[in-house]
Amino acid sequence: MAKDVLVVIEHEDGAPRRPSLEALSLARRMAQATGGRALAVVAGHGTEAVAQAVASSGADVVHHFDHELLAQYTPDGYRLAITPLIRELEPEWVLMGHTYLAQDLLPLISATFDAPVISDCVDMEIDAEKVVFHRQPYDAKLVARIFDRGPAPHFATLQSGAFPADDLPQDHGGTVDAHTIDLSGDRIRRRVLEIHDAGESTVDLSSAEMIVAGGRGLGSKEKFQQLIGQLVEALGGAAVGASRPVVDSEWLPHDHQIGSSGQIVSPKLYIGVGISGAIQHVVGIRGSQVIVAINKDKDAPIFNEATYGIVGDAEELVPAIAQAIAEARQS
């Protein structure tokens, strides 16, 4: 039997989201290796253009569910469309980007097939025998090679940016298969009341040229303010960023948070102090031109992202660095 790979597409403003295109790109690679097809499913309302875009971008067949109750994402709406489709198509793999929506949805579907999800994958090996995905447990301190020994369908989600989508065609000519779906409101258990911005966002880090960010490694709110403040002052004013644990501990308001649940930044200079480099933070800083990381743990994953790395105690290092920066700026 052909080993088809099905991608569950997320869309926004009438276009497929990038993590879905990255999953489509991997689906094409997997399908090529096994002689199967790259399939996709789009659920929405008035989303014909999304389905067409996915068909042009490399899906051989796009299964499109259009219903007014699918206009707003709900796990039940999507599940009721996608689960029967998986039963019908019998794909070998079901893929999604490792997004918030995927984490809210995919395990609900995989559980129906008695399967777990190989989540947040960063790499893949494929041969005639088997597919092996790579994940990064223990906050990316280790790499695990994972094999799903259960029967198809298998489920996996892909870390954002780990699988590039650059090689997708623009005029693939895949077909769109429109499905009808019988949905009633009483089967959708999540009633969405509103979607809003999380609190007042007064801090815009996205356009900052220089950012000094601190992490839990600084130890306390006082140390954070003291050490980060020294660097900000030395730089003649830089924006202040933070990792999630720092804002969760209320050392700093929420709108200073950088990362997947905060802001995505692209400064010329990012200095991270006491930040270990959890992936949720790192995805927010990858657009930085130069990354300086200061951390006491030489194995901290932040050093995999850094241009310049300094291993040591922030309390000793930061005053010296702040002074040197201030002197350099005056000369």
Binding site: Q103, D104, L105, L106, P107, L108, I109, S110, A111, T112, P116, V117, S119, D120, R135, Q136, P137, Y138, D139, A144
Partner: peptide, 14 residues
């Protein structure tokens, strides 16, 4: 924070 699958609650719901 060890294996980081982030899926147990939703599998459980399923």
């Amino acid at each position: 924070d060890d294996d980081g699958y982030a899926e147990t609650p939703i599998l459980l719901a399923g």
